[in-house]
Design a protein around this nucleic acid. Sequence first.
DNA 1: TACGATACGGACCAGCGGTCCGCTTCTTCT
DNA 2: AGAAGAAGCGGACCGCTGGTCCGTATCGTA
Lengths: 204, 204
Amino acid sequence: MPDRKPRKDAARNREAVFAAADTLFAQCRSPEDVTMADIAAAAGVGKGTLFRAFGDRTGLIRALCEARLEPIRNAIEEGAPPLGPATPPLERVPALLDAVLCFKIDNRHLALALEGAGAGSPYSAEHYEHWHALLQGLLEQIPDRAEAGSGFTAHALLAATRADLVAYLAGEKDVPREELRDQLANFTAAVLGAGPRRGPAAEG
Amino acid sequence: MPDRKPRKDAARNREAVFAAADTLFAQCRSPEDVTMADIAAAAGVGKGTLFRAFGDRTGLIRALCEARLEPIRNAIEEGAPPLGPATPPLERVPALLDAVLCFKIDNRHLALALEGAGAGSPYSAEHYEHWHALLQGLLEQIPDRAEAGSGFTAHALLAATRADLVAYLAGEKDVPREELRDQLANFTAAVLGAGPRRGPAAEG
DNA sequence: TACGATACGGACCAGCGGTCCGCTTCTTCT
DNA sequence: AGAAGAAGCGGACCGCTGGTCCGTATCGTA
């Protein structure tokens, strides 16, 4: 373990930065409007501290997301009924996508900042690889499903929960949370070949 | 028609800029690497001319895309068999998505630049609204398909052809063009509830 | 050819992410 | 407790970008 214990002020600042960034991203319209200087000021630290702790803008956003995402990751890896590993794939896939969707609805701005962060695509991020591998693995376990090649289905399903799409629907178009979840559930069901769509959708 | 005829040099410069931008975007790794100054220099014009003609970076990219996309738009509106309006929806939807996919494969860099362009999401662009409305309209025409609410299915299908995803698969992961098309076709078929996937996919 | 309108172009500006280094604060050793 | 040294801090600073501005060159017209 090459990490020695961090100094007390360092830890305190780290938290302060997380809190400040969270607030700022939640308030502002577009993630672009929040500058590093803003975050530093709001956290009561210098810009240098920001970059020392997180490397660059992307690093900060990534770290913040990772932190906020931890509960979901745990739920998936450890094992409450709908998300946990004991659930059969055909049930777990929709649950997983629903969880992702909910996270992105509730943390629109943060998710938006994350996906718009890196210079390149969000797809190069280790973060994404993780989710894709998980989903892809589940899809392969579903019986009469010939999931081959590049795992396109998993990519496409995840694409349906892209942060900017979610933000657009939930934010701009004011689609209510439950309706969105319902629609994604329907879509997922169709993709999984589970026959006809389920019950009456909430009328818009 | 409030547009008076443009001056000759203006038209010439416009073309020069398109050509230069096209080349530069095609060559560089990430669209971010191509600056407005670069484009101006390559086109042999001043920066002022760029901004006068297109307003801002987004405007330039949008105009360029629009121009390159015109053939496809025509094919859709006028009417060759697979894309044209005479085709029944159940056939036309896959054809349309395939056309979009192909365009994004062939013009990766440009499409990437477009979607990454605006400060906000690509979803606010009139461009996107157009495609979504078209697709949504077709989906509604498919008989036993209860397409209601915000047209999520159309959004999700389009999301499967997002430029960065395409660039990632075709560029980074070297998924061959035909395989990608095949996978998207399978996916589309599944969503449309057309029963089992079609024939044997190209083995990867 | 001469004149008005239009477009050109590059110096210029503000603001961003990111760096650097003298100074402060924590930790630890005696 | 006190002092020495490491670890961390912070804001002036830099390079670069998208975008503006206006004197000047070019075009269309009579």
